[in-house]
Design a binder for these strands. Structure first.
Lengths: 150, 150
DNA sequence: ATAAACTCCGTACTATAGAACGGAGTCAAT
DNA sequence: ATTGACTCCGTTCTATAGTACGGAGTTTAT
């Protein structure tokens, strides 16, 4: 039951107790997960990862599992998911595939909608820049004019 | 020189002094510009529009020019410009076309970069959803799996 | 004259994802 | 034993674009 406590004592008597087994310190965990220390604390505050219990003496130890969770969150972010969504994705796990698919579908629609908006902007900017480049010297700035009008 | 003061007195003796000429109250200005009152105050705080002087008695009066400025800002926003950039665009005016063009060019590049990023995400999400839809019943969720791996 | 509506003004809050700070505690090594 | 490095913890700050609030003053309408 309390083997881990024993383990720690044993390690303590041998060398530093902060050399893995039971986990690593926050800075090592951050380094291994590719994030800053503050990011880990922030995820803890949001409840995205559980905070390891504070030992009576010494520092909190972050298990491998938590580091994996952080990596999971980071990869979810690269797919456009927010931290809140990343949390849900983690909770859904590998079983609730339909819900996960739905979440991804919604995200896809959002992303596509953003792309459409940006393309519209891109088109307008391109147009305006064209007008700028082909304007006569004495004409007022087409961009300024276009924003001013209506 | 102080005709406006006279005007106001005259108007005062006739009816409400808050019926245009010299400007309108903030709520009317907001309505005519299509924004909220708080937005106008916010733009004032940022120095995007000048705050009309507070008369000794009564409320501030917003001239037509300020309403135009707010509309200018709003249109600049639809082109993807931030408020800070909208301010610069307004200051550049219709003369400094080259600078304006540069600003638009930078914005265009930013927008295109965002589109590329979003398309990458779109592609990945599409892939994952495909995998979800073609997976065998007994397989773990491809999306969850993909985010977990590596 | 009094109530409803409007304005003024500063401050605080929304969302998102952290970064930075400061002081106290703890650990490791010389 | 003391220094340097690390941790802990709460709080504050960043950026962006507003929204909301609360109390006091002003104007308008009845």
């Amino acid at each position: 039951m309390f083997d881990w406590l024993l383990d720690q004592k044993v390690q303590n008597s041998i060398g530093s107790c902060y050399m893995k087994k039971n986990g690593t310190t926050i800075s090592k965990a951050a380094q291994r997960a590719g994030v800053g220390i503050e990011t880990i604390r922030y995820y803890q505050r949001l409840g995205l990862i559980e905070e390891p219990g504070k030992p009576v003496e010494g520092y909190r130890l972050y298990p491998e599992h938590t580091i994996d969770q952080i990596r999971f969150i980071k990869r979810a972010q690269t797919l456009g998911f927010t931290l809140k969504e990343a949390k849900v994705l983690g909770e859904l796990g590998e079983e609730k595939c339909l819900e996960t698919r739905d979440l991804a579908g919604l995200k896809l629609e959002l992303v596509q909608s953003k792309i459409r908006d940006l393309k519209f902007i891109e088109h307008n900017l391109n147009d305006l820049i064209q007008h700028c480049d082909t304007r006569r010297k004495d004409e007022a700035c087409p961009i300024y004019y276009s924003i001013s009008k209506q």
